[in-house]
Simulated assay, not measured.
Amino acid sequence: MRKTFEFAIKSNKIKVVNYWFGGIKLYINNHLHDFDTTLFAISNKTLLSADLDGIGTLEIKPLSALMSVEIDAYLVKGTDIQHVYSSHKRLTLKQKRLAQ
């Protein structure tokens, strides 16, 4: 079974695909940029990341629940960290606008 999360940051189409036993993969504009085969993501640890040219570094932090996986995405530029996507909690309008 797999779960897919899709969102955009500036002009980049981001897709994160999690497979129950195959790990998690990060695609940017339909190109594989990173993957991880950790079975359970329990802590607030970045498992996937990719450099978005001139924008910053995209960091994906998956969180395993009992029967599902959720993710949070952050855009990091220097010491500035912006929460740009969450599959399980609402982001503020300001956070959503920063990703566009």
Rank of each mutant, 00 (worst) to 15 (best):
R2A: 09
F7H: 05
F7D: 02
F7R: 00
F7V: 03
S11I: 15
N12T: 06
N12Y: 10
K13I: 09
I14N: 02
I14V: 13
V16L: 02
V16Q: 00
V16A: 00
V16W: 00
V17S: 05
V17Q: 04
N18Q: 11
F21H: 13
F21T: 15
G23K: 06
G23V: 07
K25A: 10
K25V: 08
L26T: 00
Y27I: 05
I28E: 02
I28T: 06
N29C: 08
N30I: 03
N30H: 10
H31G: 07
L32Y: 12
L32T: 13
H33G: 07
D34K: 01
D34Q: 02
D34L: 01
D34W: 00
F35C: 09
D36A: 10
F40A: 10
I42R: 14
S43W: 13
S43H: 12
N44K: 15
K45H: 10
L48T: 01
A50C: 07
D51N: 13
D51E: 15
L52N: 01
D53Y: 12
I55Y: 09
L58V: 04
E59G: 03
E59W: 03
E59T: 07
E59R: 04
E59P: 02
I60K: 01
K61E: 11
P62L: 05
P62C: 07
L63Y: 11
L63E: 08
S64Q: 09
L66A: 15
M67I: 15
S68D: 14
E70M: 12
E70A: 13
I71H: 00
A73D: 03
Y74D: 02
Y74T: 01
Y74I: 01
L75C: 07
K77R: 13
G78N: 07
T79M: 11
I81S: 11
I81E: 11
Q82M: 09
H83N: 05
H83V: 03
Y85K: 01
S86T: 06
S86I: 05
S87Y: 05
S87H: 04
H88F: 15
K89G: 04
R90V: 13
L91H: 06
K94S: 11
K96A: 08
Q100T: 10
Q100S: 12
